[in-house]
Structure formats: C-alpha cells, structure tokens
C-alpha cells in the first residue's frame, strides 16, 4: 500500500517576496495511496496554503508537488483532474440549486452528457440532498450547504480527495455525517488529505498525521508513532478561575512535569504534560492554593495528539 500518491518536495511559499510572510517553509512529505492523511495544526499554521499549492491554486515559491506522477508546477491540469478539492469556504452559487451547482462544476471537471447526469444524481443521493436538489442553495441550512460543498469535490470520482477544515462551524450531527462519509469514501479506496485543527477528528480518521506549525511539519507518522514521542506522559487538564503567568511557570517547574500551557480560547484551562499525573496532582493543587485560587475541575488524559503538540511546541493546540 505504500506507494506515494502525493509527494511533496521541499515545498516553500512566500507571499509577496522578498519581504512577505513565509507561509510554508521547505516542507517535504508523502501521502500514500489509499490512506487518510490529516494535516493537523492551529489556525494560520500553513494548512490552507499547502493545500492551495497541491491543488494548483498557488504557485510554489520553491519545491514541487508530484501527484499521481504529475508535477503540479508543470502539469497543473493533469493534477487537477486527479484531485477533488473541498475548500474551507462554501464555494457555491447561492441562487442556483444544488443540482445546478453540481452540474456546473461537473462540466468544469470535464464531465458531460449522461455521465454527468448520473454522477450528479449519485452525489445528491450520497449527500442526502435528492429531495431538495432543485431549491436554490441560499435557502439551505448550514449543514446542507456543507454537504453540497463536499459533493462537488466528489463529482468526478477523484483518486484523491482534499478537504480543508470541512467541519468548521457546523452542528455536531452534520459533523458526524461528514466524518462517516470520509471514512466510507476511503473504504472504497479514495486517498484523503484532511486538514483540521480538531485533534479528535485527526485521531478518529487518520492513518497518518502530519503536525504543522508556523509553516513547518514538526512531526509526522502514524498516531502510535506520534504518541510514542511523548513517552508514557499523561495530559493533566486543570481548570482554575484565573490563569496567572507566574502560576503557569511554577507548575511547569514541578518535578515530573515536562511542559505546562494555557489553552487558547478557553479561559482558565491549563494543560500539563507529566510522567505520572497522579503523582503531580497534589503538588499542583498546593501551588494553586498558594496562588489563592481554587481548582474547579481536573481531568487526566491518556497520551493524545494534543499531548504531542504540547510536547513539541510548548503550546496547547485547542481543547
């Protein structure tokens, strides 16, 4: 199974050179045929830029991507025929119906005639949109729009499906449907490149995960390989009323603790990486009490991708 479907070679992207932001720095990795590969990283890590270059939207500043044997820089059209891209935004014509959107983009993929009609019907069925297929997309719910958005990427039965954060801002049930659909497609043999900043999604779906931060791949491997990097460390999640920098520092210096960081977007939550969480907990409690705070909640987690990220960057990804 280990033939590379996508080979990323020393890929670099700098916007507005020579002074612009370097969004992706000398990245190299491969995605194998038939796997689900997740690119995990916080917002702004360079996930979308990488996908932009793979799908030929952005021209690499340096390096190349080989997709199914075709170079993205030299045979962009051949590459695009192999992949189906589902952008993060809802890239749909709001006044057209789902069927019209699908038909239009199907033609852009070079489909036509009876084949196109059959594919559109299949995708509508797959995304459970057959009933509302002829209503304008602007009248759909958020989840339905997401489904059309994904369906378009499936029209031409691509060998590779690239999904860029497909579950942002939708309800839990739609999210569930999308994850199941991705798994089903993969089971049929489709190679999937999936970007997300939700570690649970990466954990649930992926055969292999690449962790990206500040435009660089900082870790890559199967989930087992990655969690092994943190050794047998647990993640201790503490919830306090107020996170003082001094407290974070003091907690990080406790014996047996390798790192401590507040969770972005979650006031009062702290992630501690410790060899033995149970042993550290009493000391941590003491420090918290010393700071005049009371512990509101505590949770011990087994090694996760979250822990990997914390371990590698000293920052929490997101709860």
């Amino acid at each position: 199974m280990n033939t590379a479907m996508i080979e990323i070679r020393n890929l670099t992207k700098q916007f507005n050179p020579p002074d612009g932001v370097i969004a992706v720095k000398n990245v190299s990795f491969s995605i194998f045929r038939g796997e689900i590969f997740s690119l995990l990283g916080p917002n702004g890590a360079g996930k979308t830029t990488t996908i932009g270059m793979i799908s030929g939207l952005l021209t690499p500043t340096a390096g190349d991507v080989i997709v199914g044997g075709h170079s993205v820089t030299r045979e962009s059209l051949a590459v695009r025929a192999l992949i189906g891209v589902v952008p993060q935004e809802l890239a749909l014509y709001p006044t057209l119906s789902a069927r019209q959107n699908l038909t239009f983009f199907g033609k852009m993929y070079g489909l036509g005639g009876r084949e196109l009609k059959r594919r559109v019907d299949e995708v509508l069925a797959f995304t459970s949109l057959t009933e509302r297929a002829d209503d304008p997309v602007q009248e759909y719910s958020g989840g339905m729009k997401r489904r059309v958005n994904i369906g378009i990427g499936l029209l031409h039965r691509p060998q590779i499906l690239i999904l860029d954060e497909p579950t942002v801002a939708i309800d839990p049930q739609s999210r569930r449907n999308i994850l199941d659909a991705v798994k089903a497609l993969n089971a049929e043999g489709m190679t999937v490149l999936y970007t997300t900043h939700y570690m649970e999604e990466a954990q649930e779906l992926s055969h292999r995960v690449g962790i990206i931060d500040h435009g660089e791949i900082i870790a890559l491997g199967t989930q087992e390989e990655l969690t092994h990097m943190v050794g047998q460390q647990d993640t201790l999640v503490l919830k306090v009323p107020d996170v003082a920098p001094d407290l974070v520092k003091a907690l990080g210096q406790l014996p047996g603790v390798s790192s401590c960081a507040p969770v972005p977007d979650d006031d009062g939550a702290l992630h501690l990486l410790a060899t033995d969480a149970r042993q550290v907990l009493p000391e941590a409690l003491r420090l918290i009490n010393q700071a005049g705070l009371s512990l509101q909640a505590v949770e011990v987690r087994e090694p996760t991708l979250e822990a990997v990220f914390l371990h590698l960057t000293g920052r929490a990804l997101r709860d």
Partner: peptide
Amino acid sequence: QQWTLPRILSTPTP
C-alpha cells in the same frame, strides 16, 4: 470572494 473562482481553478480548468 465567494470562493467559486478558486474552486473552478481547482478543477482542470485554466
């Protein structure tokens, strides 16, 4: 702005 152009460009369409 509504990303339909990038989407078209992600298909084999110059």
